[in-house]
Design a protein around this nucleic acid. Structure first.
Lengths: 111, 111
DNA sequence: TGAGCATATAACTATATCGTTATATTGTCA
DNA sequence: TGACAATATAACGATATAGTTATATGCTCA
């Protein structure tokens, strides 16, 4: 999707954007998203991958789904989740780049 | 800065990225950043612009500074803050685009 | 049908943080 | 120097949420 030229967000938009950031502000949720980047995965598989407990992972998956970041599909007994919004990885890369730049500057201070 | 091709973040990197998102997960801080987009501004001016209290704004500005998102400059009695990391606006635009897309899909459900 | 598995939910504790009020700090200028 | 202005910090109450434990729900298959 092409972005609009930048303009100030309304107060309501700011709240929604902050809510999106809040959902991404949890290390375990980022780990879950990273795991799902490999493809859809059952709750049990996610639980093992991120080394947490099943109820905790279920709760986080629900939060991610409510924000539209993941989608689920049920097959018999097991529920498979997958990424529903690729923009999250762009966000992470942007942040990684910014952090990298910041730490690079800090290193430069000691040269 | 050019981004690397995407690769999985380490557990430590995930924590740092989540921390960055956490700083952005507050509507008032986003409002402050939006105000500073117009150029540097004193604490008092920011306080008025976002319609909050001076101690609250000072605290949020400190949080933003600790994360390297804003920088300050003191001139006599007053302290001026400015944006120190332009990537935050790219982040906001990405999120806005994603939200817009999401709501567009929802609208489509009613047509 | 009933045992067992996968997932979701409820209840709870512990911790974090927002906003407020009060106060400390630091600089200006008469 | 002393009053005032701008900013920072401390202390506090209220709210939110992460993780845990226990349990409910729902599906499969013998």
């Amino acid at each position: 999707m092409k972005m609009n030229s930048h303009q100030k967000m309304s107060a309501e938009a700011v709240v929604l954007v902050a809510a999106r950031f809040k959902v991404l502000a949890e290390p375990l949720r980022l780990q879950i998203l990273q795991h799902l980047e490999n493809g859809e995965s059952s709750v049990t598989a996610v639980t093992k991958a991120v080394n947490s407990t099943q109820p905790n992972v279920s709760k986080h998956l629900k939060i991610l789904q409510d924000e539209g970041l993941v989608a689920k599909r049920q097959d018999g007994n097991t529920v498979y989740y997958k990424i529903a919004d690729q923009s999250i990885f762009e966000l992470c890369e942007l942040v990684c780049g910014s952090l990298k730049e910041r730490f690079t500057e800090r290193i430069a201070m000691f040269i």
